[in-house]
């Protein structure tokens, strides 16, 4: 069993390379054929964070309203956890942020979602650009089965048509940031699906961050993993927040408590309460929040 890379070392590496990648981004901007989503271009040198704001967001599956009038802001470079019982709408809401919700036939979203003051539902916005800037990691690890580890990480860049990027460099950076580099650096050509469950999920995370998004959405990223792999993912989230704004949906309240600075509780499609995690877990305002987290229902 190989030793895990020292998380502190990886954090330093992530910070170092992030400034380098800002310079790379500047080069990219010149090389890119189409205009990127404005906020990316206007980011100040260094690490300006990105905020997501939801305004009266509602989501529908046909006639059924799964999310009702949610107002919520996700602070920059912070981890926000979405908790709530099954079917409360937390996954649906998060999928509205990167506009994946509308891929479902008959599904639609209403209201406003802004990334740094840009309304991503505006008709002039290219939805694929939204998804490049707002990445998503799914519950079940889903590496592309026909691709090697290297190709998997590079897939995001290739699929979204990014040019002028040194793939090898970017892939190594992403794998380091995901804490996977030491484990796979000697077998980048091996199939992506030859890794263990926890490694596959970190591979998917590397794939997501390789395109350098501004926000990373995680839909129950550790629920399919064993406890050790789960803790590794959580450590990873702590490191990643230095660079990205992170929203994590979780049904595991202890995970929300360990990982998120802010927690939002949803019930039946509504946002009941949100605030600093330690307040929610020691003294929540709403009795419904209290009932849920103390296990009186759900």
């Amino acid at each position: 069993m190989s030793a895990d890379p020292d998380p502190k070392e990886d954090a330093r590496t992530v910070s170092d390379i992030s400034t380098r990648s800002e310079q790379r981004r500047a080069r990219d901007r010149d090389a890119r054929p189409t205009a990127p989503v404005p906020s990316a271009a206007q980011a100040a040198p260094g690490r300006a964070g990105h905020t997501i704001a939801l305004e009266k967001l509602s989501a529908y599956y046909g006639e059924t309203r799964a999310v009702r009038d949610v107002d919520l802001t996700y602070a920059a470079n912070q981890v926000t956890a979405m908790i709530g019982p099954s079917g409360c709408g937390k996954s649906t809401l998060v999928r509205c942020i990167n506009r994946m919700h509308e891929e479902i036939p008959g599904a639609r979203a209403e209201g406003k979602v802004t990334l740094d003051d840009v309304d991503i539902y505006d008709s002039s916005i290219d939805v694929t650009m939204v998804r490049r800037v707002i990445g998503m990691v799914f519950q079940k690890p889903n590496p592309f089965p026909t691709m090697s580890i290297f190709d998997n990480v590079a897939a995001g860049l290739r699929l979204s048509g990014v040019r002028g990027v040194d793939l090898r460099e970017r892939v190594e950076w992403a794998l380091r940031a995901a804490g996977l580099w030491d484990e796979v650096k000697d077998r980048l050509g091996a199939p992506g699906i030859s890794l263990s469950g926890g490694q596959q999920q970190r591979l998917c995370i590397a794939r997501t961050i390789a395109v350098e998004p501004e926000v990373v959405l995680m839909d129950e990223p550790a629920s399919a993993l064993d406890p050790i792999a789960t803790l590794k993912i959580e450590d990873l989230v702590h490191e990643l927040k230095e660079r990205f704004t992170i929203v994590i949906v979780t049904h595991n309240m202890q995970q929300a408590a360990r990982v998120a600075a802010t927690t939002a509780f949803m019930l039946n499609g509504e946002l009941i309460e949100h605030g600093p995690t330690d307040k929610i877990f020691s003294n929540p305002n709403d009795s419904r929040t209290e009932d849920y987290i103390t296990g009186k229902f759900g």
């Binding site: 990445g135 889903n142 592309f144």
Partner: peptide, 9 residues
């Protein structure tokens, strides 16, 4: 889903 979420048309 994974491919779409990466920003692929």
């Amino acid at each position: 889903e994974a491919a779409l979420a990466l920003g692929a048309p």
